[in-house]
Design a binder for these strands. Sequence first.
DNA 1: CCATATACCTGGCAGC
DNA 2: TGCTGCCAGGTATATG
Length: 271
Amino acid sequence: MPELPEVEVTRLSFADRIAGARVTGVRVGKPLRWPLGCDPQSLVGSQVHGVRRRGKYLLVDLSEGLLLWHLGMSGSLLFSDDRSAPLVHDHVDLDTTQGLLRLNDPRRFGAVVFAPSENSAEAVKLLGHLGVEPLHGGFALDAFHAGLRKRKTVIKQVLLGGELVVGVGNIYASEALFLAGIRPTTRADRISRPRADKLRLAIIDVLARAVKKGGSTLRDFSSADGKTGYFQLEAHVYDRVGEPCRVCGTAIRRIQQGQRSTYYCPICQKP
DNA sequence: CCATATACCTGGCAGC
DNA sequence: TGCTGCCAGGTATATG
């Protein structure tokens, strides 16, 4: 369910509450995308220093290393004092002196992976290739435009790839391209510098607004404090095939790109 | 090295 | 009520 805004809202909803806690127990249920990579019991006694985010990963810093949490397509976290028995899709519990962090993930594309340090092979394998953070001030036009010019792929795929800029998933890629007025089928290396800047600002804008709204465009998103965010941000194009463009009234189109749906307005977005 | 396809899973929904 | 087929927020890995 999660793109950058949902992951960040999740982080904000429990980072302060879990910081300083001590791990009292770890339970791993059904297999996720990757194995934990260590003996769950070896984490007991570790202290939780804090929670950071890198792209769509949450990094829970422990005294013994770090845990990388990824929500995949359908994952969500809950951090609470409720220690009742896990339900069918509750696959990881990190119990602490300040609450229980529980991963629920019906499709199990998510994962929790232990890495001894941020420079370890385990962490680098997952994080090493990631591009810049769009909301941390380092998302500069020069590097972004230079990166686009090296890619012959269509722009939508470059955004999803996460090697230039992280956090943009299938929904926000369509939305950002609409805001920038760029057709998702446009080759990345044919995007002019001014249009690249428009896209850069659109990405920052749409992601920052979604974080600020505390949620997303997702119908079933809920953060780790259990608060749900239902369609607080109105999508311009995503999931609106056949409906009128909110700007010009033309019917929104849906196409397939890399086995995923892409939505765009044929009038507002130029090749 | 580059671009594209595949694989991993479960659940919800439309249509019959 | 079923049943079937399609669709869904991600991304490492395989393949051409």
